[in-house]
Write a protein that binds this DNA or RNA. Structure first.
Length: 678
DNA sequence: GGGGCTAAGCTTTTT
DNA sequence: GCTTAGCCCC
């Protein structure tokens, strides 16, 4: 029998050997949590405590779920890993809705709307409802509120009850939801909320899934929202074989609806819960980790954990104050070039972490100037590119002709000649007869106001649909898409539109890449019958991914926001722009949520394995004016013994005193909100 | 669909 | 003050 505990420390072993009942694993940064999670499920199956198909392990990112699948494959076999459900919360939602969504009025072919189209939909709803009148209210704000409502498990009716005064939001929210339903479309939040509603309304369906999954694990539990928590606890019943892994010190997504309370109160919510703390950090040097820990220990509301770094003492943290933002960036770029030249650290070992996307620019400029290769994480993702969105719209339309957004795009590129006024007539007709726009289109001959020419174009469009609809049924996806590209004149249209442009080649390559993706999907699902809707639901969840490639092949310096860095590690990390106007952000101060900002700082520090550099500019240009910068107050919380001693130089003393008084001030300000000595 | 102009806005965004 | 996004017009 395989020894699944080989090379593990005591707490890791205890977690891996846990069998039935709820288990909370508090996993400090770099403590080997993925290892523990995967080893435990591999062991459960290996020892025949359950079948592989009874394992459900949920993560937040595609990357994390891929990694988990890989590791389980290595520990058992690829076949075993394939039988398990190792996926993200959202793809679990897709699976459930595809299987049983019909019970709540959702066809198997439903579409998933992306963020951009969502804003567009809200905009038109707001316009139609007169909400976007005088004050020109921001659809983004409405989107955020609706999303938070959905994450808190509030449907339009619940929300209205809880917030009777938010009349505009109420109107927009309920009309948004009914439009989505009419288009047989869901948004990302629905992928969680709708399964939950399905479960509450159809206990028999819930029972089916409860029986299917006998062991449930959740990764990054500190980031779960109300809906995810409910889903997890529903699915784990009745045995409650629920393992959750997370680190309350790394909860940085409260503004997206994550409830850190879920992890803080887990052990009191679940009777007989076992709690295990993974208290060895294998990632960072002692100097780095102890410093980071000293900072985060200032948070009042947290699970007490004494975590020690075991990877050796290391060098002190270095600090640099630039003359201005440019000088700061220059110093960092120089340092990296120097490391690459004279030390064992190469470019790819370095990461520059910033608080806001806008702060990346001076670094990009400096790196480019010095010829240092770099990659910006979070640049435009593959699926956001125009040509890809166009193609996806075509595919969505064929999978789900009720999807009006996609139909609108299809009608536009290349232009099918059906005019806006014709569409308006069709739309009215659809509303009057309570049918979809597509249904109305098919009955266009009933509308006398439409001109003969337009009737002809609509007929051609319907024929075009029927032809390819059949092809999608009979031919392979990839082949049909190739036909589609020619038949619609899309390729010709591209060639014309980007005639003298370098970007034409790139766009063609992107289309090629998409075709390869389709072929890959067909290959992967060859046994399970690949379908158009299935493919689309797969890729919808990859929407924010830059495309697999890099990582292993990557050569350059990584430039990204602190938020994006969570879960990653780099030998050398630069935390830059440590300016008190950015971290903690003014908004966080306003909301009294400084602890989360401190956690963000902690996440940044703990990304570093060998060397950590903290920098800030002495002055900056802010809204056109030169201003003196006050360093980030968290710098003051790093014990001097771990620093290279530069912080606290005379010229900085005044400012650092200010920083000390900053915390006093904050304490005063929020005394009433419970942040006092009790 | 792109070019050019005007007007905001200046946190973070796993899916 | 400068960048970016949205919108109008071609």
């Amino acid at each position: 029998m395989i020894d699944f505990t080989k090379g593990l420390n005591d707490s890791q072993r205890n977690a891996v050997l846990h069998n039935e009942g709820p288990l909370l694993v508090l996993a400090g940064a770099g403590s080997g949590k993925t290892r523990v999670l995967t080893m435990r499920i591999a062991r459960l199956v290996h020892e025949k405590r359950c079948k592989p198909e009874e394992i459900l392990a949920v993560t937040f990112t595609n990357k994390a779920s891929r990694e988990m699948k890989e590791r389980v494959s290595q520990l058992s076999s690829e076949k075993t890993a394939d039988l398990m459900t190792l996926c993200t919360f959202h793809s679990l939602g897709v699976k459930i809705l595809r299987e049983d969504g019909e019970k709540i009025g959702l066809k198997k072919t439903f579409s998933i709307i992306d963020e951009h189209d969502k804003i567009g939909t809200l905009k038109s709803i707001m316009r139609a409802n007169g909400v976007r009148g005088l004050k020109n209210e921001d659809p983004e704000e409405f989107a955020t509120k609706i999303s938070l409502a959905k994450n808190a498990s509030l449907d339009p009716d619940n929300y209205k009850e809880a917030n009777p005064d938010e009349r505009k939001i109420n109107r927009v929210y309920s009309s948004y939801n009914s439009i989505l339903l009419k288009n047989q479309t869901v948004d990302f939040d629905d992928l969680l909320l709708l399964p939950l509603q399905l479960f509450t309304r159809h206990p028999d369906v819930l029972a089916k899934y409860q029986k299917r999954y006998s062991f449930v694990s959740i990764d990054e539990f500190q980031d779960t929202n109300t809906v995810q928590m409910k889903l997890a606890s529903f699915l784990a019943l009745p045995q409650n074989n629920l393992m959750v892994v997370g680190d309350d010190d790394q909860g940085i997504y409260s503004w997206r609806g994550a409830e850190i309370e879920n992890i803080l109160s887990f052990s009191s919510k679940f009777r007989k819960c076992t709690t295990i703390i993974l208290d060895k950090n294998y990632r960072s040097t002692h100097q780095i980790f102890a410093a980071a820990h000293a900072v985060v220990a200032n948070n009042r509301v947290r699970k007490l954990k004494e975590i020690t770094a075991v990877a050796g003492d290391g060098d002190p943290i270095m600090h640099y104050k630039g003359d201005d933002e440019e000088d700061e960036a220059m110093w960092v770029a120089e340092k990296i070039a120097e490391h690459n030249e004279h030390t064992s650290f190469s470019y790819k070992d370095h990461a520059i972490l910033v608080r806001t996307n806008a702060m990346m620019r001076p670094y990009e400029e400096e790196l480019r100037r010095k010829g240092v290769p770099y990659r910006v994480s979070g640049a435009m993702s593959f699926y956001e590119r125009k040509e890809i969105k166009d193609m996806i719209a075509y595919l969505r339309f064929f999978a789900n002709p009720d999807d009006e957004l996609s139909m609108a795009r299809v009608l536009k590129v290349p232009n099918k000649g059906i005019t806006p006024s014709t569409l308006e007539l069709l739309d009215e007709f659809a509303a009057f007869r309570r049918m979809s726009l597509w249904e109305a289109m098919k009955r266009h001959s009933e509308l006398e106001k439409i001109s003969d020419g337009q009737h002809g174009l609509i007929n051609a469009f319907i024929e075009f649909f029927n032809k390819f609809d059949k092809l999608f049924e009979t031919n392979t996806l990839a082949l049909t898409v190739r036909d589609l590209l020619n038949d619609t004149g899309y390729l010709a249209h591209m060639a014309k539109a980007y005639k003298d442009d370098d970007s034409l080649k790139m766009r063609m390559e992107n289309i090629d890449e998409l075709l390869h993706g389709i072929e890959y999907y067909e290959h992967k699902f060859r046994k399970k019958k690949p379908t158009l809707a299935g493919y689309l639901q797969e890729v919808a969840l990859l929407s924010s991914e830059t495309k697999e490639e890099d990582e292993s092949k990557q050569r350059g310096v990584t430039l990204m926001t602190l938020h994006k860095s969570k879960g990653l590690e780099f030998p050398v990390v630069f935390l830059v722009g440590l300016d008190k106007d950015y971290i903690p952000s003014p908004r966080a101060i306003e909301e009294g949520n400084i602890d989360e900002e401190r956690r963000l700082f902690y996440v940044g520090m703990t990304r570093a394995q060998k060397r950590l550099f903290l920098t800030y500019p002495g002055t900056k240009v802010f809204r056109g004016k030169q201003k003196t910068v006050t360093p980030c107050p968290f710098l003051r919380e790093i014990p001097e013994e771990f620093l290279d001693g530069k912080i606290g130089q005379k010229q900085d003393d005044e400012k650092l005193e200010y920083v000390d008084s900053f915390f006093k001030e904050m304490k005063e300000k929020f005394k009433l909100s419970g942040d006092d000595e009790n």
